[in-house]
Amino acid sequence: MSISFGSSKISLSEIFNAMRQGDPGSKVYKIINFVRIPRTLAAVLAGCALSVSGAILQSVLNNSLASPGIIGVNSGAGLFAVLIAAFFPANIYYTTFAAFTGAFVAVLLVYYIAKATGASRMAIVLSGVAVSSFIGAATDTVLTLKPDVVMERTAFLIGGFSGVTMDRLSFAAFFIIIAFIVALILSYDMNILALGDETAKSLGLNVRRFRFIFLILVAMLAGAAISFAGLLGFVGLIIPHVSRFLVGYDNRILIPVSALLGSIFTLLCDLLARVIFAPYEIPVGIIMSFLGGPFFIYLLIKGRRGQLYD
């Protein structure tokens, strides 16, 4: 479906024919190969990565409001993307790499500041807020001095999958797949960590080391997704909640379910973004917030009745 719909419609049989013939000259083949397939993959990967990173973070920080943005992922990626656009406009191609590095650097900074005060959950959240606001100020400074990069910045802020290419994607996909597998293996340790620091420690879990590993996984997943999709943070907040509502709190089940639902939700939003006002497109981030916001409120009210959140 996602491959079929778009600014120009291609029927399923046309897709099938074009792929079978594999004629590199045909228009349909080109659209499919260079636009639709990368775009579909991008939506699936970004949805999966952001949802899983949100699920990990909410569990590890024991904070249901946590999304990757809270530990500096967004601001770090944003700053580096803007820096590239401002100072190396010729190398705009490296934005993906820069955004990823920025997310990573920000998370490391947050962790080491938090570590100085004992790396408690609250310390991580607070230093995340502090680092984010500092980096945000740095980004605004760059934007003030170099106003011509504002456009780039706006596209990044809203997020979307138009203009995603296969080679930009494969770099990020590598990190997302590795981090996802590690997260699945360590999902049981995540359950132990959720019992609280003292209980986890007495069960033999190295609390600080695992918290650090989980933050790195979050940075890898969210940083990689943001690097090609921009800020689609909302998926990372709501999909883990929806999944928990459906399958409960066991991370061994929650993580794969979040990955699946996140992919489906993002794919659906991207599809709507392409067809609602076709041939014009609206950025997927806007659709996501329009759909996700009310649905999330509905869940909150329903969950409150069932005492899901305390």
Partner: peptide, 21 residues
Amino acid sequence: SNKELAKKLSFLPQIRKVPNI
């Protein structure tokens, strides 16, 4: 090591989370 020790002694903290499991 953490795990070796966890096979020899256990500890019940006073304030604990109520996990949703």
